[in-house]
Computed example of a mutant assay.
Amino acid sequence: MSAIELAAENGQPVTEDLSQSPLAIRGMTVSYGEQPVIFSIDMTVRPGEMTAIVGPNGAGKSTLLKAALGIVKPLSGRALMHGKPIAAQMDRVAYVPQRASVDWDFPTQVLDVVLMGLYRELGLLRRVRARHIAHAMDCLRRVGMEDFAERQIGQLSGGQQQRVFLARALAQKADLYLLDEPFAGVDAATERAIIDVLKALRDEGKTVVAVHHDLSTVPAYFDNVFLINRRRMGEGPVAEVFTDAALQATYGGRLAAGQAGLTAAG
Results as ranks from 00 to 15, higher is better:
residue 17 D to I: 01
residue 44 T to N: 12
residue 49 E to T: 11
residue 18 L to G: 06
residue 222 F to V: 03
residue 130 A to D: 14
residue 260 A to W: 09
residue 59 A to F: 00
residue 61 K to C: 02
residue 255 L to V: 02
residue 51 T to H: 13
residue 194 I to F: 12
residue 33 G to T: 01
residue 190 T to Y: 09
residue 167 A to R: 03
residue 40 S to C: 11
residue 108 T to A: 14
residue 87 A to S: 15
residue 66 K to C: 05
residue 89 Q to Y: 08
residue 262 L to P: 01
residue 36 P to H: 08
residue 138 D to I: 00
residue 110 V to L: 11
residue 225 V to F: 07
residue 14 V to R: 07
residue 182 P to K: 08
residue 77 G to I: 05
residue 198 L to Y: 10
residue 139 C to D: 04
residue 128 V to H: 07
residue 95 Y to Q: 05
residue 52 A to N: 04
residue 165 F to K: 00
residue 91 D to G: 15
residue 66 K to S: 07
residue 96 V to I: 15
residue 14 V to I: 15
residue 137 M to P: 04
residue 240 E to S: 14
residue 224 N to D: 15
residue 19 S to D: 03
residue 92 R to M: 10
residue 162 Q to A: 10
residue 132 H to V: 01
residue 49 E to Q: 13
residue 161 Q to A: 09
residue 65 L to P: 00
residue 11 G to W: 06
residue 93 V to I: 08
residue 142 R to V: 10
residue 54 V to N: 05
residue 169 A to Y: 04
residue 74 P to K: 11
residue 24 A to D: 07
residue 207 T to E: 04
residue 178 L to E: 03
residue 178 L to H: 01
residue 147 D to C: 11
residue 78 R to T: 10
residue 58 G to Y: 03
residue 253 G to N: 04
residue 44 T to H: 13
residue 140 L to F: 06
residue 245 A to T: 10
residue 116 M to R: 08
residue 40 S to F: 07
residue 214 D to H: 04
residue 239 A to R: 15
residue 127 R to C: 10
residue 26 R to A: 12
residue 262 L to E: 11
residue 148 F to C: 15
residue 94 A to Q: 05
residue 226 F to G: 01
residue 113 V to S: 06
residue 203 D to C: 09
residue 81 M to R: 13
residue 135 H to C: 04
residue 123 G to N: 07
residue 154 G to A: 12
residue 197 V to E: 10
residue 30 V to E: 12
residue 70 G to Y: 05
residue 85 P to L: 12
residue 256 A to P: 01
residue 252 G to W: 08
residue 52 A to P: 00
residue 196 D to P: 04
residue 13 P to V: 00
residue 240 E to A: 15
residue 232 R to N: 15
residue 204 E to D: 13
residue 162 Q to P: 03
residue 90 M to F: 03
residue 123 G to C: 07
residue 26 R to M: 12
residue 83 G to Q: 06
residue 259 Q to F: 13
residue 194 I to D: 05
residue 181 E to T: 00
residue 129 R to S: 05
residue 187 D to C: 02
residue 249 A to N: 10
residue 150 E to I: 07
residue 67 A to S: 12
residue 176 L to H: 03
residue 129 R to A: 11
residue 71 I to N: 11
residue 37 V to E: 13
residue 225 V to I: 09
residue 160 Q to D: 10
residue 86 I to Q: 02
residue 101 S to T: 14
residue 153 I to G: 08
residue 124 L to F: 12
residue 132 H to M: 03
residue 47 P to V: 08
residue 218 V to M: 01
residue 52 A to I: 02
residue 81 M to W: 05
residue 183 F to W: 09
residue 143 V to N: 08
residue 85 P to Y: 13
residue 92 R to T: 09
residue 145 M to F: 04
residue 116 M to S: 12
residue 254 R to K: 14
residue 141 R to A: 14
residue 239 A to W: 11
residue 136 A to N: 00
residue 211 V to N: 01
residue 224 N to V: 05
residue 235 E to Y: 03
residue 40 S to R: 08
residue 97 P to I: 08
residue 5 E to K: 11
residue 96 V to G: 09
residue 191 E to K: 06
residue 21 S to K: 07
residue 263 T to D: 04
residue 234 G to F: 02
residue 213 H to A: 10
residue 162 Q to M: 06
residue 27 G to R: 05
residue 163 R to T: 03
residue 237 P to C: 10
residue 173 K to V: 07
residue 84 K to Q: 14
